[in-house]
Design a protein around this nucleic acid. Sequence first.
RNA 1: GGGAGCGUAGCUCAAUUGGCAGAGCAAUGGACUCUUAAUCCAUAGGUUGUGGGUUCGAUUCCCUCCGCUCUCACCA
Length: 506
Amino acid sequence: MGEGDLGTKEQEIYDQRLEKAAKWREAGFNPYGNGYRPQHQAAEIHAKHAAQSAEEIEQAAPPPYDVAGRVVAMRSFGKAAFIKLRDGSGEIQVHMKKDALGDAYETFKLCDLGDFLAATGPVFRSKTGELTLSATKFTPLTKSLRPLPEKWHGLTDVEIRYRQRYLDLVSNPDVKQTFLRRNKLIRFIRDFLDTRDFVEVETPMMHPLVSGAAARPFTTHHNALDIDLYMRIAPELYLKRLVVGGLERVYEVNRNFRNEGISTRHNPEFTMLEFYQAYATYEDLMDLSEEMISEAAKAVTGDTKVKYGDHVLDFGKGWKRISMTEAIREVVSGLSDKDMADADRLRHELLKTRHSEAERRAIDTMNHGELVGALFEHHVEHTLIHPTFITHFPTAVSPLARRNDANPDVTDRFELYVAGREIANAFSELNDPLDQKGRFQAQLDAKQRGQQETMDYDEDYIRALEHGMPPTAGEGIGIDRLAMLFTDSQSIRDVILFPLLKPLAK
RNA sequence: GGGAGCGUAGCUCAAUUGGCAGAGCAAUGGACUCUUAAUCCAUAGGUUGUGGGUUCGAUUCCCUCCGCUCUCACCA
């Protein structure tokens, strides 16, 4: 963006401020200078004097402070003014007086909301009790040429908030808090896993094959090698190769890319935690997940009871664990054991609810496992508000998960649901190379049938399994969705700094 | 991709049945040395998202396109 996109009024302000910047230069201040090092921060100054009254501060006569920040408020009285400077730690009011500043006060008059300034001087409490720095010296640092959004209502235009996140951050203090919480969450998770001897690794984001999830990939091209590559949809198969190699506990927190629809719960690139633990089962991971997420809730929000929209989510331990078929039977009445095993009966049940023509055609070709999965998604998923583990997913929809010993039609797998959404997916890993070959083949067959979201046959992964992968369990957790829960955000775009938007036409 | 809604000054929002496009903040000039959305006086600021149509006249009604939001589909 350049001057070309300025409205008439904005252009006027732009030109006025350029002139003021020129006058800063005449007064000896570079409006884009560098090297000023403030000695103090707003929060530090507040902390030092929080307990002191106006008289106590006056008697203590603390040495002068030196702060720098953006001007976010200005109330001028001709020969004096109160301004508010915001730095990385917070805000502090500064009193600019002609008495104290002399000729420099004329330069101060050339400052606007949005400029960066430094100010030096002792502190006092104003008549209303606010801790205020009384400037004996000030230094203009950076000239802002464009006006900030309105000071009272802030920036509410959702599109501008996402496209120009910097303005959102300046105008809406909650936004910064949201992203600080997100950061705290990720740091907590790293710390949690590190202390349990997990090793953080980085695996490729450009894959020659589509693997690790059922999703449509982005494709890209490497010029020198002249090959097409896929942006990864999941790191799963690489991480398990590392388990084969002897890294018994590994994790990765990073971006996945899926070329699918965008919604309040889906961004094309999103952050996923995946971790793998040798000699663990999916049941161990339920315990681990419960511990990690309930402790994360406490660390990030201060409590295991978390307000989310109209709900108060209870992350306190003792989460419900229920198999997918039982969960369906709890919600859909009148399904016997026999009915649950009968594909036609399930298809009939599923078709009772509204579906488009395309959906009906898809339902007609679904096998038993796929029908169970579809019934769950339609009837149960949105009802799971408090953290709930759904276990024993059909083998047909779990191409990388180990079969259950008692019932090979289901897998040793669970998904965690909170607020009606999937947050995590985990299973005991399939380490039988022959079974895995068959599952990959089934994916190829599904592709033949026209299904778009299928995995490729990964021969090297089979070879790795043939060398032997210890009994292992692995899990993926959607970090963005977890961050949504812990920040009371209704849209994934509110926890992603720069969500994907369509570029504006020229 | 389907459906619903939205787009007016830099920002936040008004505008009667289709009848001169307005206010607050921000800006500019002036007054003011303890303000907290400071106050007071004055001034300026508009291709009503884009392009077309209907009409004597369109921010308003109709159509195209652009963008956003919600939702459904797709998708763990």
